[in-house]
Design a protein around this nucleic acid. Structure first.
Ligand code: MN
Ligand code: MN
Ligand code: ZN
Ligand code: ZN
Lengths: 136, 136
DNA sequence: AATGTTATTGCAAATGATTTTCAATTGCAA
DNA sequence: TTGCAATTGAAAATCATTTGCAATAACATT
């Protein structure tokens, strides 16, 4: 965990980053808190939030805003991808989007912005919920 | 305001919807509350929230989730568009995105989802902030 | 126009997510 | 070791939004 440069490498940070890296999916603060507490019963929710913010600032994790109010987190560094969320069951699926570069250029031309990040979020119904509702 | 069908057409609803329609931009609940109170001092913040939810359910307004925690609202019905937000000054610009249809199909094929909505959000620096920071 | 039924309102209190405060603890450089 | 700043846990604070409830207003029906 040499990525923590300047900051101290503490037990709770090591544990939390480790969990985020091992657990695949999109954890929220509370899920991470519960997982961490299972291994070290005295981690606190404040520390979870503080660590998530730190990891985000250091570029180690990405914060996702799905439909729910609270945030979800996942490791950063893999292939850039985007998300679809199911309105029926909440399922989240990832996909790669071959249009982002073109979109970026296009939007940059149109707005004059220097664009750093693009996020594509879609919503709809997953295969299972489609047939359950029979044709939405 | 015949769009309110079944529900009652009240003074505060008329006023609020009117304001959202007149004021261009992306209002948040508090801004709308202040504007409304200027015209009718006894509208309440609860009613603003309740009305926003109603308008959203009726498809009269769209809720936007920019960088800040709280939501912003704008009239629905014009041309579908997307947003860039400036990290320097918070400025929001709109643009039309010619790729959404293709993206939708592509993501639908890849995930099996029946996709209803696509939202593209970008972040970066506006022209003004670019030169202020001289090359980010 | 007067009435009765209900949806809607304002206010205050409740909620949920996240942040902050502060005293005690811990990592780590010297 | 020692010293000290960074970090922690616990509780309180904050921020956005929602809810409970009694009073009020909309509007269909006399
Ligand atoms: Mn993901
Ligand atoms: Mn807009
Ligand atoms: Zn589903
Ligand atoms: Zn700017």
């Amino acid at each position: 965990m040499q990525e923590l440069k300047g900051q101290r490498v503490t037990n709770q940070r090591r544990l939390l980053l480790d969990l985020i890296r091992r657990v695949e999916g999109h954890l929220d603060a509370d899920e991470l808190y519960r997982l961490a507490k299972a291994r070290d019963p005295h981690v606190s929710l404040s520390t979870v939030y503080r660590s998530l913010r730190l990891f985000k600032e250091l570029g180690l994790v990405e914060e996702r805003h799905f439909i729910e109010e609270h945030h979800h987190y996942e490791v950063k560094g893999g292939i850039e991808h985007h998300h679809v969320v199911c309105h029926g069951c909440g399922k989240v699926m990832e996909f790669e989007c071959p249009f982002v570069e073109r979109m970026k250029k296009d939007a940059s031309n149109k707005t004059g912005f220097h664009i750093l990040g693009v996020e594509v979020s879609m919503e709809g119904y997953c295969d299972r919920c489609q047939e359950r509702i029979e044709g939405v």
